[in-house]
Amino acid sequence: MNLSFFDQFSSPHLLGHPLILLSLLLPALLFPSPGNRWINNRLSTIQLWLLHLITKQLMIPLNKNGHKWALMLTSLMTMLLTINLLGLLPYTFTPTTQLSMNMALAFPLWLATLLTGLRNKPSASLAHLLPEGTPTPLIPALILIETTSLLIRPLALGVRLTANLTAGHLLIQLISTASIALKPILPTVSILTMAILLLLTILEVAVAMIQAYVFVLLLSLYLQENI
């Protein structure tokens, strides 16, 4: 019973095929690939506006060299956003709750930012290991601490997304289970629980968007240090 709440996070299989492939591929259908001769409609206009806004927000703090990453970061944001939001539908599986997927995204991208810095301006990116104005006796300890914080970044990036989405889905399931279980005994409390569930769902929609943004924003901040 205790474990069954976590069953929603186990990757589903159908006839021996993992359905995580489908849930990775399907969110891409939300975005059409408009040709040159397409007439604008409301959907494509609002998508274009959103993509423009995301790209602008991500590229403002970066300098010109970092603008090559615009496509990478924007498409990553789009993918995470669509997967997170579609995963909030009932009876669907969210691939971004899987730690292996988030680490698979976080680790190579973090490594790319690090290697870009070490390749293009090694002394400047190594200088981030020591904050300016540190008292001399503290230097060895601080370098150790900063190195650890540099190396722990991909782990934190992946775990953050996993933990936030997992917690949200768990809370939704807990409260809805409580609401169903309370219905025969305490109808009033059950209705109140439903109201809380509604509010929580709104919060989770916000969390799904915010966490996708935070993932990409942190990557762009790591990039900013290194470019």
Binding site: F6, D7, F9, S10, S11, P18, I20, L21, L24, L25, A28, M79, P95, T97, Q98, L99, S100, M101, M103, A104, L105, P108, T162, T166
Partner: peptide, 18 residues
Amino acid sequence: PQLNPAPWFSIMVMTWLT
């Protein structure tokens, strides 16, 4: 189960291909 890295390689390949 969400912490189980079981088919991590195929998940990574699929994610990056998508």
